[in-house]
Simulated assay, not measured.
Amino acid sequence: MHQTLCTLRIILLPVVLVFSLAGSVATASIQTPASPPLEKVSLQLSWKHQFEFAGFYAAAQQGYFAEQGLDVDIREYREGVDLVDEVTSGRADFGIYSDDLIFERMDGRPVVLLANYFKRYPLVFLAQPGLKTLDDLKGGKLMISNKGRKSMVVRAALHRAGLTPGENLELLDHTFDVGPLIRAEVDAMSAFRSNEPFFLDRQNISYEVIELSDTLPGLGDINLYTSETQAALHPERTRAFVEASNRGWRYALDHPEETVDLILQRYKPQASREALLFEAGQVRELMLPDRFP
């Protein structure tokens, strides 16, 4: 009997070793190699955190950037920053700029347009009741930001209407609120159609909207761009950033309330939830996703 047990032990031992080794091999085979670390890149925004940049926030939150191997630092605009220089110098990898990006390129600055999101020009003039056209502003006061004064669309619109700052139109520094218009201290003010009208509507203030988009049709806003150097050295990374951003915009437009809550919780904007939801609706119209899928 003892001899029989010894024989069984001798026979079983190799079997146990085989199963043990097989288990080790199986365990090793299902261990996936560690994912490479995400590549850090930066996006310089053209203004403060709000819904006009919602697609980029959504791309980060939903993991679309991470799926492309990117860890994106989204930077809010700071007063005095030269947005184009920020990217062409390499301090930021990507940037957002207005329609004037085209003219920056024409002036020889090494920028590359990657994507355009707003298909309609968002800047308008909000005017006192009865002032319906640019012609009606002759001899009046226009409150406008420094960026607005430099806009090629604004300059072309004023020129076409025969308005010359300092002669038949007084330009005033922008206070970035609608108070001067409400108090009739100005005849008109520059505004983003997705922002300032909300505050006038909420107070039941009457006003006119003077469109500028007909001056240079075809120009939009929220243009994603990079530098020639970045595009040449990192073509795959550039392509991956655009693809993730596009997915983010689709998600943001399909889930506006969720995206507004994300902006409020993570990016701490100055605007209220109600104002951001108003902006979300306006952004959808500016992007015209049904016409430009």
Rank of each mutant, 00 (worst) to 15 (best):
A34C: 06
P293G: 02
A28E: 10
S46D: 09
R78I: 08
A240E: 02
R247Q: 13
D261M: 04
T164V: 12
E285V: 07
Q128M: 15
L233S: 12
A157P: 04
R160F: 03
A275Y: 06
G139Q: 11
A252Y: 06
F19T: 12
I222E: 13
L8A: 08
Y267M: 04
R266M: 07
A252E: 10
L212I: 00
F292G: 05
A58C: 00
E257T: 11
D107Q: 13
D73F: 07
A26T: 05
D261Y: 04
V124A: 03
D136I: 03
L216N: 02
L123H: 10
V25M: 09
S24F: 13
E243R: 14
L286Q: 00
S89T: 08
G140F: 07
R284A: 13
S194M: 13
L12M: 13
Q128H: 07
P14F: 00
V81T: 14
Y77D: 09
L126C: 01
P14M: 08
Y97S: 04
P14I: 05
S98Y: 09
G55I: 09
V18R: 09
Q203R: 15
P165G: 06
S194I: 12
H49G: 11
V81M: 03
E39F: 08
L38Y: 06
P293R: 14
T133Y: 04
M143A: 15
G23R: 15
R237Y: 00
D71C: 02
Y267H: 11
A156W: 09
E258S: 07
Y251D: 02
L38G: 06
V18P: 06
V154R: 04
Y77K: 12
P217T: 02
E243V: 07
H159D: 08
D99R: 10
